[in-house]
Design a binder for these strands. Structure first.
Length: 412
RNA sequence: GCGUCGGUGGCAGAGUGGUCAAUUGCAACAGACUGUAAAUCUGUCGGACAUCGUCCUACGAAGGUUCAAAUCCUUCCCGGCGCA
């Protein structure tokens, strides 16, 4: 049987792991490297799908299994004919498995921890406590999920109802949702988890990975239409990352996600050791990462696609990406890319700044609207503010990534 | 004119003898955000020094009572309502 999701490499970088390629899916091709827009609840917050085609230019969109399972329920999406029909997403789509919610509603719940350890991990550990996965700590902190060998029991953040996710269950739900690329149920670990726990969680994720493949293969209809990615874990421990990459490489996945937590300082190393092992002819998606400089790093280290909520999340509250005008060249000269900074339009100075949002960006919104106008929209609480800022930020990051792709193509 | 209720920090609005430089909300000012518990969250928000903190000036104005007043009394100014 022909696989629904296949990958073709166009060119490879010299002296690094970068490559350009095309991911073929039933709903179209994705030219990589590419940024994946996040629309968790089958909605890119504040945007119409038409905004994506007209003003952003993204090729692929990612929704979330856990959120759609809770609301409106995957059966309703199935009735509608799948997520493409339901949400009018006429492009390749992905669904995340719910593995991130094991983290965000579990270890991270109520603590303000992110999957990125900034600076010294031991400080995070000290601040938030070790063994955050123990039952007692879970109760103390009111976590909304408990993990066991077979799966995860969630308490809905919407209404408190109890739900059970297993590898098989996540795959079933993702079959109903019908995205082109689906992801095996994994556990996104906290950066504050110690090595012993990272190893334990990783091994469990590998067992869930095997079960996910089995579940996927049992649904012949889905097998024809949806590709399945397995997720590499291992946290900030390079040897665990390698072990995870080896284990998953041996499994019959159509591609790979690289998930879990990272240290900001050695993101590149983590990705390199993983991508040196993962089969070259399969696409690699870096889960949940995406500041501009992270994407440069990720591409150099062999990642093909990236998703991140930052452009829409920061955009909704008034922060936008702009170019400083300075260009940065990576050490071996592979890429020259614009230095990026984030500015908060709520800051006083922008009230009277009548220059365009980002004079150096080519995007329609960046060229057409001014900082003073958006500053006004945010202050006035007008929904157009979040809308325009989200479009701009997404256009910015999609083009940023696309530009890196074009440089690789041109130089090779 | 008489009666009555009221005048609190940029605004709204608590407080009604000490724990009040004064709850809270909004506004303002700044910060955070990386597989979205997120149109969210955090901090500051009279002034000056400034490490907890210290000292000034403040609750319409001016006096007064009291160890102590945004809070009680007197007069005045201003506003709402009622009666003329």
């Amino acid at each position: 049987m022909v696989k629904p999701v296949t990958f073709e490499i166009e060119v490879k970088g010299k002296g690094n792991l970068a490559r350009t390629g095309v991911i073929h899916t039933p709903h179209g091709d994705i030219s990589t490297p590419a940024f994946v827009v996040v629309g968790t609840k089958a909605s890119v917050k504040s945007l119409m799908p038409e905004d994506m085609t007209q003003y952003i230019g993204n090729q692929v969109t990612l929704a979330n299994t856990y959120h759609l399972f809770l609301q409106p329920g995957h059966e309703i999406i199935k009735e509608a004919g799948g997520i493409h029909q339901f949400a009018n997403w006429q492009m390749p789509t992905m669904t995340d498995s719910g593995g991130f919610q094991v983290f965000s509603l579990g270890a991270a719940f109520g603590k303000g921890v992110t999957k990125f350890a900034q600076g010294d991990v031991s400080e995070v550990v000290e601040q938030h406590g070790l063994n955050v996965y123990s039952r007692k700590v879970a109760e103390d902190h009111g976590k909304l999920c408990i993990i066991d060998e077979d799966g995860v029991t969630f308490t809905s953040h919407l209404d408190g109802s109890m739900h059970r996710f297993t590898a098989e269950r996540s795959i079933d739900i993702q079959h109903a949702i019908g995205a082109d690329i689906i992801i095996a149920f994994d556990e996104c670990t906290s950066p504050s988890a110690e090595r012993e726990y990272q190893k334990e969680a990783m091994d469990r994720t590998h067992r869930w990975a095997k079960r996910s493949i089995m579940a996927h293969k049992q649904n012949y209809d889905a097998l024809k239409k949806q590709g399945l990615y397995g997720v590499v874990q291992g946290g900030q421990f390079l040897d665990l990352r390698q072990e995870s990459a080896r284990a998953l490489s041996a499994m019959d996945f159509d591609g790979f996600g690289i998930g879990g937590s990272f240290s900001k300082s050695d993101l590149g190393d983590s990705l390199r050791v993983v991508n040196e092992i993962l089969p070259e002819d399969k696409p690699r998606h870096l889960l949940g990462i995406g500041e501009p400089e992270d994407i440069v790093q990720g591409i150099l280290m062999g990642c093909d696609t990236f998703d991140c909520v930052a452009p829409t999340r920061i955009g909704r509250t008034g922060t936008i990406y702009v170019m400083t005008g300075k260009m940065i060249t990576t050490p071996c000269g592979t890429f020259t890319y614009p230095e990026t900074k984030k500015i908060n339009l709520n800051n006083q100075q922008y009230k009277t700044d009548h220059t365009s949002l980002d004079p150096l960006s080519q995007g329609y919104v960046a060229q057409t609207y001014t900082k003073a106008y958006l500053a006004h929209l945010f202050r006035a609480g007008e929904i157009l503010g979040p809308h325009l800022a989200s479009i701009h930020n997404l256009n910015f990051i999609v083009n940023f990534t696309q530009n890196l792709r074009e440089q690789l193509l041109a130089k090779t």
